[in-house]
Design a protein around this nucleic acid. Structure first.
Length: 341
DNA sequence: AACAGTCTCAACCGCCTCGAG
DNA sequence: TCTCGAGGCGGTTGAGACTGT
């Protein structure tokens, strides 16, 4: 019971680290490994608090840290996980290998949060801002945004009034066409092309909010899920059999006391896309041999989840959403590249 | 060129949890 | 069982970079 306090010391240096300090810390950790942070400053010849050394190492010096711009897929993962877990940066960071919680937190606060607000989405609840007089109107004057108002798929109207009002009716569209009867191919054409990332974020955020509700309802046992299904790949044509399976599984089609279909007028495209997103999520779980909660609800990263598969699934979905060649890069190649870094 | 305002992000602060003693 | 320090975490700060006037 005579441990030394970690950060109580005179003459401890604060502020930005110098290159020399970095060198000392790296050198020491390479030789002795991580851990025992309390003793590292003294042993490494640093006038720093052990806690400061740990943070410097974890957030900046660690060799496998990926720095620089966040990819589109990473942004989507952050938004989805934030919708389900809130400001649990460490949890989110576990699903973004090589990214630190601090970096994700900064990126959220400086980029994604503002972007969602610009889109008229509350970054806390991931629901449309009620007080926003002109929700969804980006500040940017991207000429491509002209398409937005024309297509409607990316317009504020396509966002759910609230995630609780997702329409779960089988025949929710205005023309009474069963949502689940449409082929994926035809549904894909409901979305106009767009090169604006913010537009996609708009949609992702809306879905992310619904995921959170679905998961919450599921956790409380108010959703009935079938776990023995083999969902179609997003790129596959739907057979009648698989379509039936989706009908049985799709959480969006299940009656739920948490997801009240009180807004029948909700945009048809959104309903369709919400439906497709559930397929994506299901595929997510099935492919990884686990369920979607492993991604969105777990507090520990699952070693069974392959990063490249996750990224490929995200990419499949994002490509489906926008059909934009800007995003149709080969994520597998990205993964391969990363693996050899 | 100079200044002010804004943005970014590394680093710090303080609280919490866990586990060693 | 209790105490207390290490480590982890989320929130916040502030220095430097950037941008606009």
């Amino acid at each position: 019971m005579s441990r030394k306090p970690c950060c109580v010391g005179e003459g401890l240096k604060k502020g930005a680290w110098t290159a020399e300090e970095d060198k000392k810390l790296i050198s020491y950790i390479h030789e002795h490994g991580e851990g025992g942070w309390r003793d590292i400053p003294q042993k490494a010849g640093l006038k720093r608090c052990g806690k400061s050394c740990r943070l410097r190492w974890a957030n900046y010096l660690k060799p496998d840290i990926k720095r620089g711009e966040f990819s589109y897929e990473e942004e989507q993962i952050i938004i989805m996980l934030h919708a389900s877990r809130g400001n649990k940066w460490s949890v989110i960071a576990r699903h973004l290998p090589k990214r630190t919680d601090n970096e994700i937190k900064n990126y959220w606060n400086t980029h994604l949060k503002k972007r969602l607000i610009d889109q008229g989405i509350d970054p806390v609840t991931h629901k449309p801002l009620a007080s926003n007089p002109n929700p969804g109107t980006p500040k940017t004057s991207d000429p491509n945004d002209d398409e937005q108002s024309q297509s409607g798929s990316m317009s504020p109207k396509s966002l759910p009034p609230s995630s609780n009002s997702y329409n779960l009716q089988e025949t929710s569209s205005s023309d009474e066409t069963p949502r689940h009867g449409a082929s994926l191919t035809s549904k894909k054409h409901l979305f106009k092309r767009s090169s604006s990332t913010s537009k996609v974020l708009n949609k992702v955020a809306a879905r992310a909010a619904s995921i959170g509700n679905i998961l919450s309802a599921s956790m409380e046992g108010t959703l009935i899920s079938s776990t023995s299904l083999s969902p179609p790949c997003l790129n596959d044509d739907f057979s009648e059999t698989s379509q039936l399976q989706i009908d049985e599984y799709d959480p969006f089609s299940q009656p739920s006391e948490h997801i009240i279909p009180d807004d029948i007028s909700m945009n048809t495209e959104l309903n369709n896309s919400a439906y497709d997103f559930s397929q994506f999520l299901e595929q997510f779980g099935n492919n990884e041999g686990d369920n979607i909660q492993d991604l969105l609800m777990s507090d520990v990263s699952s070693p069974s989840v392959d990063e490249c598969d996750i990224m490929q699934n995200i990419t499949d979905w994002s490509n489906y959403l926008v059909e934009d060649s800007d995003f149709n890069h080969d994520t597998n190649q990205d993964c391969d590249d990363r693996n050899f870094i």
